Simulated assay, not measured.
Amino acid sequence: MNSNQTIAQQLAPVKQCAQQSLIVVMSDIPNDLEALASFSMLAKAYCNTHAGAEVLLNIASVVEQGGIWIGESIMQKLLGGAVLEAPQIERAMGKWSKVLTGREFEVAKAIAIGLTNKEIALKMHITERTVKAHVGAVLDKLQLKNRLQLALLVKEG
């Protein structure tokens, strides 16, 4: 793939051509930001290109069974603190959508399917700036750190 493009730019054509495919992203120099970007583009796994055969077989097994292969450092970032506060408990109980406006809920669903702000803006007939405002409001209301956490929450509930 082209190293001058972001991971999202590299995965977009793959996602369009092979919508039902299970995507595993491998990187020579893996990093958390690239991993998060890969998962936001609906990749099912992210790993080092130098992973051993046993690890690759484990990844294949997890992905084939419908799971997601997430490295330990990414998992720690996603989980954040271990103490559940009231808003987190509500999210865990599936009540997260009740705190969002209709538009915020639409934006959250669009993020969960991997749309970019630009794509969401086009789909909803609003400006990208408005989308960014909705994304910020959703993340604040749900006390989430990033789009990946939001996508995982939407897909769970």
Rank of each mutant, 00 (worst) to 15 (best):
E85K: 06
A53G: 04
V99I: 12
C17L: 13
L42Q: 15
R147A: 13
V99D: 15
M26K: 10
G81A: 04
G136C: 05
L57E: 10
S27R: 03
L144G: 06
M124P: 03
L144N: 10
K155H: 07
Y46K: 03
L100K: 09
V24N: 07
R103E: 13
E72P: 03
T130A: 06
L56Q: 08
P13F: 07
A51C: 11
N4V: 00
G157Q: 05
A137T: 15
Q9M: 12
E104T: 07
E54S: 12
I23W: 05
E106P: 05
G52I: 09
I74P: 00
D28E: 10
F39C: 06
R147D: 14
A43L: 08
V154H: 10
H125R: 11
R91A: 14
S97V: 00
L11C: 09
K77P: 00
L42C: 09
I23H: 03
I70D: 02
H134F: 09
V99S: 15
Q20L: 04
G67Y: 09
L115I: 12
S97R: 11
I7N: 00
K145L: 05
A45I: 01
G94I: 01
W69P: 12
Q20T: 11
I111T: 11
L152D: 12
R147F: 07
Q20I: 01
E119Q: 15
L153H: 06
G114W: 09
K155N: 14
I120W: 11
V135W: 10
S40V: 14
R147M: 12
E85Y: 06
V83H: 08
V14H: 02
G80L: 13
I29S: 02
E106L: 10
C47L: 07
Q10A: 06
L78Q: 01
R91M: 15
L150D: 13
G80D: 12
T127A: 14
L148Y: 14
Q65R: 00
D28Y: 12
V138R: 15
K98N: 11
V62K: 05
E85D: 10
I59T: 02
E85G: 06
S61V: 03
I68H: 07
L148C: 12
H125Q: 12
L139S: 08
T116N: 01
K118N: 12
L79M: 10
S21G: 05
Q76V: 00
A82V: 15
I70L: 14
S38V: 13
H50P: 05
Q143K: 14
L84M: 11
E85I: 09
K15W: 10
I70R: 01
H50W: 01
L115E: 14
K118G: 13
A92F: 12
D140C: 01
L56W: 00
K118M: 13
K44A: 12
